[in-house]
Structure formats: C-alpha cells, structure tokens
Simulated assay, not measured.
Amino acid sequence: MDVARSIPIFILAGLCEIGGGYLVWLWLKEGKPWWFGLLGGLALACYGIVATWQTSNFARVYATYGGFFIVMSILWSMKFDNYSPDKYDIVGALVALLGVCIIYYAPRS
C-alpha cells in the first residue's frame, strides 16, 4: 500500500465519521435542528464508502483506521469542544497510531 495514498484516505474517513457522529451528537444531545442529524447520517454513510477506497483487506483497513480515529477524535475535540488532552491521552494516542501503522505498513512477503 502506498503510504502517500492511504493516509489521506484514512484522514478523509475520519473526518466523515467523526464529523458525522458529532453532528448527530449535537442534534440528539444538544437540541440542534433535525437537519444536523440528517447531515450527520449522510457523513457517516460517506465514511463507509471512503473506507473502501483503501487497497488492503477489511481487517487491516479497519484496525488501522482505529488508530487514526483515536488521534483525530482528540484533535477534533480540541478544536470543536475545547478539550485539553493530558500527557496520557497524547502518549496513548501515539502508541495506538504507531501500532496500527505497523499492522498496515509493515512489509510482508
């Protein structure tokens, strides 16, 4: 898998899933209009499509996406929810990302 091609796909998938989930959260938990939920649902459906653009198998794609999701969720909440991660959040996220990158990008014969 070409790293330069796969990372933007993981990031786009994360934006679709996290953004979609956040819109649904705002609709149901914070009383935003119904169309927040509709847009969130559409974004979540797009996430399912974007993930298929990866060239590896389902298991590796979704396992690896999990690490990207962790990092992106922290970044999203810092930007949109005034969240301040502590050192354990940061170290844990980086360990997860490193682990999934080993799973996905390790050379195999």
Score class of each variant (00 low, 15 high):
90 I>F: 02
37 G>R: 03
17 E>V: 06
48 G>S: 05
96 A>M: 04
82 N>Q: 11
49 I>N: 14
85 P>I: 09
37 G>Q: 07
9 I>Q: 08
4 A>V: 06
3 V>K: 06
103 I>F: 03
1 M>V: 13
26 L>H: 12
63 A>V: 11
58 F>P: 13
103 I>G: 05
1 M>H: 08
108 R>P: 08
65 Y>L: 00
93 A>D: 01
100 V>F: 01
52 T>W: 09
40 G>D: 11
7 I>F: 08
26 L>M: 14
27 W>D: 14
27 W>C: 15
8 P>V: 01
71 V>C: 00
71 V>H: 00
62 Y>H: 13
61 V>S: 09
27 W>S: 14
72 M>H: 12
89 D>K: 07
64 T>H: 04
89 D>I: 02
61 V>T: 13
43 A>Q: 03
105 Y>L: 14
22 Y>N: 11
37 G>V: 09
27 W>N: 14
39 L>A: 13
36 F>L: 15
24 V>M: 13
91 V>I: 14
75 L>W: 06
65 Y>W: 12
14 G>E: 08
16 C>G: 06
4 A>G: 04
14 G>R: 11
91 V>N: 07
41 G>Q: 13
39 L>S: 11
53 W>A: 09
92 G>F: 09
21 G>T: 14
103 I>Q: 00
84 S>E: 15
11 I>Q: 09
5 R>G: 07
102 I>L: 06
79 K>H: 07
7 I>V: 13
1 M>I: 13
67 G>W: 01
93 A>T: 06
26 L>N: 15
29 K>H: 11
67 G>A: 00
61 V>A: 09
101 C>K: 03
45 A>V: 10
108 R>T: 15
65 Y>Q: 11
7 I>A: 09
71 V>W: 02
63 A>C: 13
30 E>N: 14
45 A>I: 13
